[in-house]
């Protein structure tokens, strides 16, 4: 793409891209910290996750201020307007991802003293790794303006939903087996839900990347597979 005649406008757009990339990097890091904190029941790691979230919030505020100033000053149109507006929306999604990750990390404090059945964590880690990979890919898609990569992320959220369903059932089963698991499993359940929500924000970002590049919204229905809102497991009568 040709550069703007006004160099400072071009510089501002580049700064916007740097800011969103930095936010994305922080969000990725925070998700890793959050999982680590939960897995190792490590309050220190949880504390650093809380601090990282504050950084993301600060970056979002700065980005938002820059966007408002640019709209007032440049009156952007066409691809520039899409660029500025989608970055603003993506910043909102990344901020939410930060909040949800922080919420996962904070649960490390609550479950610090609980016993920790290993197999429970396997599903959790697997699901988190999948969402991490998607977040990374969608941030790459944004940086490269790559629609195909964004669409791959958008389509693969279904797998996260499927994994969440199985984890949900698994946790219910543990709770039924031994009521002493209920505290821990409830925290894990909320954690899993948060990761599933992070997956949803990731697909939002993918949709915005698609709009940014093509000017068109994705009109297909997104494949979804979250059935937990209608799942019940009945206690067998002994």
């Amino acid at each position: 793409m040709n550069e703007h005649i006004v160099k400072s406008y071009e510089d501002e757009l580049k700064l916007l891209d740097r800011r969103i990339a930095q936010m994305g990097g922080c969000a990725e890091k925070l998700l890793v910290q959050a999982l680590g904190a939960l897995e190792r029941r490590d309050p220190k790691l949880a504390e650093s996750a809380v601090a990282s979230d504050a950084t993301i919030d600060q970056l979002e505020r700065e980005l938002q201020e820059q966007v408002i100033e640019m709209i007032a000053k440049r009156q952007p149109i066409a691809n520039d307007l899409r660029h500025i507006m989608t970055v603003l929306k993506i910043a909102g999604d990344l901020e939410r991802i930060g909040d949800l990750s922080k919420n996962i990390a904070k649960r490390a404090f609550a479950i610090a003293g609980e016993s920790h059945p290993k197999p429970l964590m396997t599903g959790m880690r697997h699901m988190t790794e999948m969402v991490q990979a998607q977040l990374k890919q969608v941030l790459d898609a944004l940086a490269e303006r790559n629609v195909e990569k964004a669409l791959q992320v958008w389509r693969s959220d279904q797998q996260v939903d499927a994994m969440y369903n199985s984890l949900f059932r698994e946790l219910l089963t543990y709770m039924m087996e031994d009521p002493r698991n209920i505290g821990l499993c409830t925290h894990f359940l909320f954690g899993a839900k948060n990761i599933e929500r992070i997956g949803d924000h990731t697909t939002n970002i993918a949709e915005n990347v698609h709009y940014l590049v093509t000017g068109q919204a994705i009109t297909d229905d997104r494949p979804k597979d979250d059935q937990t809102s209608s799942t019940l497991i009945t206690v067998p009568h002994s």
Partner: peptide
């Protein structure tokens, strides 16, 4: 024209990119 023009020249002109 102002949100998603088809021609690159239009896009360059309205966004202030004409060299």
């Amino acid at each position: 024209i102002f949100s998603n023009p088809k021609d690159q020249r239009t896009q360059d002109y309205i966004t202030g990119r004409f060299g």
